[in-house]
């Protein structure tokens, strides 16, 4: 059986987990076995709907102390559930919580683990999973040598698959270990679309000259319904918040569309974004290295091009 850990934030299931579920269901199909989901905490979503992304059954441990991550507690519980339910493969999203617990769960299950996976397993010769390495500059095929396997799948690398199912829901009986950390404060950041979950991303670099010029970029993002990102020097200079920094030493993203404005395309920047499906580069220097990694390019002054692009998008929207 393939068991998928369903992550939540603010009692809402994360999209990354629905993708992990679709991925887990695809592995179960390869193996001809069942897909089951594991949900902790008091989640507000309708759990039967997890069937729509491939779960046949949902195991729930409803306890509000589990709404925020305590690695020692959560990893113990996931491992205990996997043993109780006889899971052969445990799947996580490689998101903030998934990366925190999946390796600990693997240790507790004597399982080999691949984190940052980006392909279905190849079972022709053992059990091989492809993962991104060198921060997006390459891929590695990793063979898992153990009977039980743990996989944490990269966000936006598999996609959601729709199933025509309603999952059955069962309570799972597990003893919750004592808390190992105490949460004393939560600070929410504004901004509606989390970068790692965004399908569309508009990103700005030093070419925008200063934080006061970000309006044109924000207008474009708004017209598209896109999340915003930036290059490292931009976040280092505090023109934009740190959580927008993408690249080898920031976050790595793989949206459907990445629009880079006034970013030169340094190798460290490209490493974080080169898995984007489509890349648009707007830069006034025709020699900017980013054009080599782009699908579409506009050679021109961002202050002129970006408002035009925003207007064109508004126009296309109005025509629809």
């Amino acid at each position: 059986m393939v068991l998928v850990y369903i992550d939540q934030a603010d009692q809402q299931i994360k999209k990354a987990s629905l993708e992990a579920l679709s991925y887990g269901a695809a592995i179960a199909k390869q193996l001809g076995c069942a897909t089951e989901a594991l949900v902790f905490g008091t989640v507000k979503d309708n759990l039967a709907d997890l069937g729509k992304n491939g779960a046949q059954k949902v195991h729930q441990l409803k306890n509000e102390t589990l709404n925020s991550m305590d690695v020692k507690v959560h990893s113990n519980l996931v491992a205990a559930a996997a043993k109780q339910l006889n899971a052969n493969i445990v799947v996580f999203a490689h998101n903030l919580n998934g990366r925190a617990i999946a390796p600990a769960v693997a240790v507790k299950l004597d399982a080999g683990i691949v984190t940052g996976a980006c392909s279905l397993p190849n079972m022709q010769n053992g059990f091989e999973v492809t993962k991104t390495v060198f921060s997006g500059k390459a891929f590695a095929n990793i063979k898992i040598e153990t009977a039980i396997k743990v996989i944490a799948i990269n966000q936006n690398s598999f996609g959601l698959v729709a199933y025509d199912n309603a999952a059955s829901i069962e309570a799972i009986n597990l003893v919750i270990p004592p808390a190992s950390i105490k949460i004393t404060k939560v600070e929410k950041i504004e901004g509606d679309i989390p970068l790692t979950e965004a399908n569309l991303v508009v990103s700005g670099g030093r070419g925008l000259k200063g934080p006061e010029n970000w309006g044109i970029l924000l207008d474009l993002a708004k017209a598209l319904g896109a999340a915003t990102a930036c290059s490292r020097p931009v976040s280092d200079a505090d023109w934009r918040p740190h959580h927008e920094h993408v690249g080898q030493t920031g976050i790595q993203i793989a949206p459907n569309l990445y629009i880079a404005i006034g970013i030169s395309g340094a190798i460290q920047h490209l490493a974080g974004v080169n898995r984007s499906k489509t890349i648009v580069v707007i830069n006034k220097d025709p020699e900017a290295p980013f054009f080599k990694a782009a699908d579409y390019g506009v050679v021109g002054d961002a202050f002129d091009v970006v408002p035009r692009l925003t207007a064109a998008i508004e126009k296309a929207k109005a025509a629809n």
Partner: peptide, 27 residues
């Protein structure tokens, strides 16, 4: 528990399509 059997490089981009800055409708 795991071993690396092979590496791969991402497929190269087929080349950038340049669009005239005056033609954003086209983009």
């Amino acid at each position: 528990t795991t071993s690396i059997s092979a590496f791969d490089l991402p497929p190269a981009k087929s080349g950038v399509k340049l669009i005239d800055p005056e033609q954003m409708d086209e983009l």
